[in-house]
Design a protein around this nucleic acid. Structure first.
Lengths: 210, 210
DNA sequence: ATAAGTTTGTGCCCTTTGTTACCGTAGTTT
DNA sequence: AAACTACGGTAACAAAGGGCACAAACTTAT
């Protein structure tokens, strides 16, 4: 685990901090598709993502979902951090998009390191900044763009994050992420196929050029 | 200024910090309707809101706007802070909604106090948390609600923030904030009037019961 | 092989929201 | 008073997206 920590975070973290993380953090290997955090849960540790990708989503009272953003290697979920610090319940759900390796750090340590390590402070702040910017982009996307464009953006992001130009999702799953209906997604995908941007198959989509 | 600072922030800030703010901060009194921060600007100081309210909005490339949230007394704009810390340009526009009193604190001090004062750290974190949550609510609102409900929420919030149940806006201004057209706003407002929830007048709306 | 379930394609219609156009009213300027 | 401007009301139409129904293609279980 040390090499991975070093490789991913060494530009942020000083050696004593790395040592503490090794000591206090708990390494988890999670397969794709697992819910590692859910709405309404209390959170006692925060995740540092060593490898893989995690999707973060929001749900309303009626169970309607919306993808907020993906977390990639070296990132952490600030919304979760915010919940930790405020000792409130989680506002979001996090699901592994690919197989992942995660270090879980207990909240108390996180607060302690805040005063103790400049590298940690910087990391936490940069994370907040990144998350805020991602959220702003999400807002832009749903406020200013139409579904065609949102779908294209979604597919691009998915290819990037999974590092695979075959998207292994059903139309229904995509519809949930974009908070729309399966019929609409099928329609738009067909349109993209006619434009030669992708090829549709059962259970996966081959992205050619978006 | 000291009394106002104390009144607003004394639950967060220790006395030496208050003293430093008094020394380093610059008090500004800004009338309603002024743009105090604009998209693309570099930011050299962050605002602490002593009194009044500020509206924070986002704009896309085509100049379409969307209200993100309001800042109230004792709050600060985390998106701005994030820009400061990352030394990037502002992602948002901030306009005074009412007459306001603001203390502007230079970025360097803010970073310095981060290591020095626990109260400041807590304040900054709570701010981030509040902003993230507000942004999540904004996302919920545009993703899951229809315009009727968004308009009602908007009017409620406006009454709360200005502490005035006469909303002094034209339909066009409301349309800009909600990122829709004037005609649509007029239509929905008329519907609300028929439901006895408000009374329409030229240049202002008398909110009765939403 | 057959049945049952899942996934996708598609036509039709409805609701919500956006657009255009035009009018009346109030206030302002000349 | 006439002309102009900003604001709001409304009708008619357009576009985007959602819902329903059903068929076809494919997969899995029996």
């Amino acid at each position: 685990m040390e090499e991975e920590l070093l490789g991913t975070f060494s530009n942020y973290f000083e050696q004593p901090l790395i040592d503490e993380i090794l000591e206090e953090g708990k390494l988890m290997e999670v397969p794709a598709g697992e819910t590692i955090m859910d709405i309404g849960q209390y959170i006692r540790s925060i995740p540092l993502l060593l490898s893989g990708a995690i999707k973060v989503l929001r749900e309303d009272d009626e169970g309607d979902e919306l993808l907020l953003y993906y977390l990639a290697q070296g990132e952490t979920c600030s919304v979760t951090m915010a919940c930790c610090m405020g000792h409130t319940k989680s506002e979001i759900r996090a699901i592994t998009e690919t197989d992942t390796k995660i270090v879980m750090v207990p909240v108390q340590k996180m607060e302690e390191w805040m005063a103790k390590y400049k590298g940690w402070r910087n990391y936490v702040f940069d994370s907040y900044q990144n998350r805020l910017n991602e959220l702003l982009q999400t807002v832009d996307s749903i406020a200013f763009k139409n579904l065609d464009q949102r779908l294209v953006d979604y597919l691009k992001k998915k290819v990037e994050v999974t590092n695979d130009n075959r998207i292994r999702s059903t139309h229904q799953e995509i519809a949930y992420d974009l908070h729309t209906s399966r019929v609409v997604v099928s329609r738009l995908l067909k349109k993209l196929e006619k434009m030669k941007k992708l090829v549709l198959h059962r259970n996966y989509i081959h992205v050619v050029d978006l």
